[in-house]
Design a protein around this nucleic acid. Sequence first.
DNA 1: GTCTATACGTAGATAGAC
DNA 2: GTCTATCTACGTATAGAC
Lengths: 199, 199
Amino acid sequence: MEAVSFKQKMQLAREDVILEAVNHLLASKGFELMTVDEVAAEAGIAKASLYRHFASKEELAAAAMVRMLDQALALADSLPEQAGPVEKLQALARWAMQTQLAGQMPALPHANSALVGALSRHQVYLERVFRLSDRMGEWIVQAQEQGLLAADLPPQLILYNLFARACDPVLHFLKVSGAHSDEEIIALLLRTTFTGLAR
Amino acid sequence: MEAVSFKQKMQLAREDVILEAVNHLLASKGFELMTVDEVAAEAGIAKASLYRHFASKEELAAAAMVRMLDQALALADSLPEQAGPVEKLQALARWAMQTQLAGQMPALPHANSALVGALSRHQVYLERVFRLSDRMGEWIVQAQEQGLLAADLPPQLILYNLFARACDPVLHFLKVSGAHSDEEIIALLLRTTFTGLAR
DNA sequence: GTCTATACGTAGATAGAC
DNA sequence: GTCTATCTACGTATAGAC
């Protein structure tokens, strides 16, 4: 079975190159403006060959989203056990913002996009989203019990607020202004997220 | 000249109907997915007639953005003089979130959209953006001087953070969850924006 | 100024050779 | 499994009659 395994590895490597291109294009132009021709060109493959690996443009984007969620889950698993829940949540938010600033965070599609419908029926994607939400949800509740996060805020609101850092337009505008380094931008947004604009 | 004035009024009214449709469609699907056919259908006008009023799809969207910015500027002008700077900023953020929840806030285009280039060269649009930024910028600095907002945060960051409430995806997800009324959602997000998730 | 009808470009997806 | 070439659908924009 070694030949099969090798072939499979080659196929996975090829698909990883494709998804890298999808990630980049989704981050820079979003789903609607990304064309399959561009993906094929950036991956160095013919469009028809690409369609042998992924059945549709939606499948292509979904695979990129799953890949990104897997990276987030891997980071969640790699965090030291003794770290506090807020530190863990901040580590994930920091990673999401770094990824966005690096132009590698696939952008959220708009509500009526064909992608939204496809994702809402995509079992693999949904499983990743739920798994990451569960992980973060536990930390949020712990942090609230320990008095580290406001206990009277709905945990769901906190979760959404953290997810939203991955696509926060403030990151982009601050970067374009040129007045701050990436690390400074992330520190500023972590601060406003957790302690707000006041005081 | 009364006939001309009447004709102009009719034309403005017609264009207002068109822009209402544009606003709604921009809010629900974004610029790329909005088609000029849909705008014409929703406005009850033929597509060719629509192009007599607006030279391109980009002009159509820009006009809708200008209309929205004019509403924000009118609100800013109508705020009581004796109100504090933070109250004024919150009033604008509240209005932006209400407008988004009502499905009337035209969505930000993605970075590489044709719309971005058109807007960045659209003098009328730019003037409105600068004017609103200046108004809010003064209030931000006042609030910082009075110790009501963190004085060590860049005013620009505060400004962007407030603008971002107009397109915050958290609003949409909280609304879909069905657990809160619109007013509750707005109150929650005003709180997290100004005092954060902590404590 | 409004309409119907159409030109023109482009994007997703596929056929079929190798 | 990869390629070139092509199909089909659709969206922007315009022509031309009234």
